[in-house]
Design a protein around this nucleic acid. Structure first.
Length: 744
DNA sequence: GACGGCTAGACTCTA
DNA sequence: TCTAGCCGTC
């Protein structure tokens, strides 16, 4: 057993408090970079090392596999080999493991498939078609998102109450059918993993009881991002002993779109009476200017407990700001900075570029290619989302679980084997009529001679092919199975015949998949992890398929390569880099335009900006572009409000907003000129009234000079004016920030 | 049943 | 700008 002294050595007082408080509910408010992973891992080690818990009595839940892996490794480093075996996993994989054991009680089979977003969308489309719901009234993506939101709130079709209006009823019908089809496929979507586990615990007290007794200590990372169904799950798990330790930072709650509820962390003390609270405010990552700038931004939010981050690090550069003319200029500025740093010996891997949306990566990629600089775009289209890779995996899935209809439909005519739309329609009709899976319907169609001569032959050949693989699948290595499968199905031959650059790339990807599979088999001696937990070893193919599905964006990041990483601010959470560029800081981009008319959504954008800024250890550079091409059209964006929320003394470079403008290379002073400032704090008009400007009026702007109002858009404090300035041309001015003089 | 060409609509963020 | 889905032709 490790020495308890050695476990707490080197921790600060607050961290030690958090570790020593082992019994009952505990809320740890951990600011960015305050050593929360350290606290969590040492807490696990302490629980075991002090003899309070056996490893298997501990459950630690995170949001990404990467975080789980890191935590597991760090716990292992603190403990002897025989003290390992605490379950450290994501919410989704924790639920998946529970369901693999228990799901028969809910009427599914343990070998269920897991549907990712693409599978789920395909199923929604099939359901809409079967129900005759038009895509205009029921856009598939919207329906999928609505179902997902409900599941994240723990609501299954049976729970939908009331709603006598047509929309609600029709939606309930769609949702019900979607869920029925999932069950017929013996498949679960991401939301099901959570909601069905809660359902299981709520309907089977004896099952819940066994897990309550098993996991006597529960730890949760990133608690601010839990959604209602995760919250319910945690409450159920700790109901008996209340040994729940949650760690989080309300300023880093950025997953409202998947129903994360910031109130979970804000109300923790109310939900768990008698909870202890520990605050970790000492930051071990960033310089003071970076911390102050990030804190100043997030201080503009109302929904927070408030904290003051400090560091013992001395000095540090000011936060830099750069104003680019367009997105290409923004990219070339970033790359030129990187080049000059590289000349001074800074590794590329020590820098990262964060943007709001994936679509912003492109100009950076082009610029980096120009200089032959290695880079990695994290996210976007994942390797496993590529068509050929997905096809190959669907073959494996269909062999493992033939009733997985989405997989089967995907590969039934891939490569083309003459089973076309007409045949499929017939089989689908049969499946709907009998209420069975597509695989069963294929059998029925053959048996009852429902298909024409040619179709009959092709379908029975396909069925035989799949059955042949099913019969020989066990015992075989996955790599061998996959290789044989790709050849026997003619998949490889079809690509080779195509002989295009694209086909060549697809073949490369399949080879890459093969090596990945082999690597997986090499690393995972049969069911290692499961055996540590005292469970039955699991089938390797099952493990592989679910691992691939539950893999997240950041999980694939390999820090040993010297390459620049580009990623969204969401993916960046939990990571840190010496040098960080946050780009595209413009109104409508970051904050994203979809959030602009909702104050709480803007607060979430602000938290996201805070997350991005606090990833930086030594240098932080903030960029924006005056114009940007988006979806093919040119847009003029105002500087992000977040930029003007940073106090002037913390920043250097082109400061927008009340810190002065740079226009055409010329610097303008921060002090407003004699223009009449419209002071909204004593507004003569209520925010919902029309703004006091009309098209056609002549106005004067302190920087752009005289001009004519062309258009007034929006109302209240979000109103915008389009003004054609005599010298500076057409500009869009946000009324809130405008210092306009009426000239009439 | 396969394939090519055209058009409307979409990109926010993710396990 | 890109792509999924539709339509027409062989």
């Amino acid at each position: 057993m490790p020495n308890v002294e050695s476990i707490t050595r080197g921790l600060n007082r607050e961290q030690r408090d958090a570790i020593a408080h082992t019994e009952g509910p505990l809320l740890v408010l951990a600011g960015a970079g305050s050593g929360k992973t350290r606290m969590l891992t040492h807490r696990i080690a302490y629980l075991i090392g002090s003899g309070r818990a056996r490893p298997r009595e501990i459950l630690a839940v995170t949001f990404t596999n990467k975080a789980a892996r890191e935590m597991r490794e760090r716990v292992h480093a603190l403990l002897d080999a025989d003290a390992r075996g605490a379950q450290v996993a994501t919410f989704h994989s924790t639920c998946m493991r529970i369901l693999r054991r228990e799901i028969a009680q809910l009427g599914y089979e343990p070998g269920f498939a897991i549907y990712d977003q693409a599978d789920s969308l395909a199923l929604v489309k099939r359901v809409l078609r079967a129900l005759g719901a038009g895509v205009r009234a029921w856009p598939p993506r919207g329906v999928r998102a609505r179902i997902d939101r409900l599941k994240n709130r723990g609501i299954l079709p049976d729970d939908l109450v009331g709603g006598d209006d047509e929309d609600t009823q029709r939606f309930a019908e769609i949702y019900q059918r979607y869920q029925t089809e999932l069950r017929r496929s013996n498949a679960l979507d991401f939301g099901d993993l959570l909601v069905l586990t809660v359902r299981l615990f709520e309907t089977r007290p004896e099952v819940l009881d066994s897990y309550q007794r098993r996991w006597r200590y529960v730890l949760v990372d990133e608690y601010q991002d839990t959604n209602p169904v995760q919250y319910r799950l945690l409450r159920l798990l700790v109901a008996a002993h209340q040994n729940l330790c949650v760690v989080g930072d309300e300023d880093q709650s950025i997953y409202a779109f998947r129903e994360a509820d910031i109130r979970n962390i804000l109300d923790f003390e109310k939900d768990f009476p008698g909870a202890n609270v520990v605050r970790l405010e000492q930051n071990y990552r960033s310089t003071q200017p970076i911390l102050d700038a990030a804190s100043a931004v997030v201080a503009h939010n109302l929904e927070r407990k408030g904290k003051r981050l400090f560091t013992e690090r001395d000095g540090g550069e000011l936060v830099r700001m750069y104003e680019a003319s367009d997105e290409r200029d923004e990219a070339s500025f970033v790359v030129s900075e990187l080049l000059s740093w590289r000349d001074r010996g800074v590794r590329l891997a020590d820098s990262a570029v964060f943007y709001r949306t994936h679509a912003q990566s492109r100009p950076f990629e082009e610029e980096l290619l120009k200089y032959n600089l290695p880079y990695a775009v994290v996210g976007g289209t994942r390797f496993y989302d590529r068509k050929e890779v997905k096809d190959a995996l669907c073959y494996l899935r269909a062999i493992r679980n033939p009733h997985d209809s989405e997989s089967l439909l995907r590969i039934v005519n891939e490569p083309a084997r003459g089973i076309g739309r007409t045949t499929i329609e017939r089989v689908l009709a049969c499946a709907n009529e009998r209420g069975v899976s597509i695989w069963s319907a294929l059998g029925i169609a053959l048996e009852e001679k429902r298909l024409g001569g040619a179709a009959f032959k092709r379908v029975s050949a396909f069925v035989e092919l799949m059955e042949g693989f099913r019969a020989e699948a066990p015992g075989d290595s996955i790599g061998q199975l996959l290789a044989r499968l790709l050849n026997a199905t003619g998949y490889v031959a079809a690509l080779e015949k195509e002989a295009t650059v694209e086909a060549e790339a697809r073949l490369d990807n399949l080879n890459e998949l093969l090596s990945a599979v082999e690597e997986f088999e090499r690393v995972n001696a049969p069911g290692v992890e499961e055996q540590e937990n005292g469970d039955e070893p699991r089938d390797l193919l099952d493990l592989y398929l679910e691992q691939v599905t539950l893999l997240s964006e950041a999980d694939t990041l390999d820090p040993s390569d010297d390459r620049l990483v580009l990623m969204t601010a969401h993916v960046a959470k939990g990571l840190e880099f010496p040098n960080v560029f946050v780009v595209g800081l413009e109104e409508g981009i970051f904050p994203h335009f979809a959030s602009l008319d909702d104050p709480s959504a803007v607060e979430e954008e602000r938290r996201l900006c805070y997350v991005a800024m606090t990833r930086a250890r030594d240098r932080l550079v903030l960029c924006r572009a005056e114009t940007r091409r988006l979806h093919g059209s040119l847009r003029y964006n105002q500087p992000s409000r977040f930029l003007s929320e940073i106090p002037g003394e913390l920043a250097s470079g082109d400061r927008p907003g009340d810190g002065g403008y740079a226009v055409g290379g010329e610097r303008f002073p921060a002090e407003p000129s004699a223009g009449v400032r419209i002071d909204f704090s004593h507004a003569q008009w209520s925010p919902d009234d029309l703004p006091p400007f009309q098209a056609g009026q002549r106005v004067e702007h302190p920087i752009f000079g005289p001009g004519s109002v062309v258009e007034v858009a929006g109302s209240g404090s979000d109103a915008k004016l389009r003004i054609r300035f005599d010298r500076a041309g057409m500009k869009t001015i946000k009324l809130r920030y405008a210092e306009l003089d009426l000239l009439n």
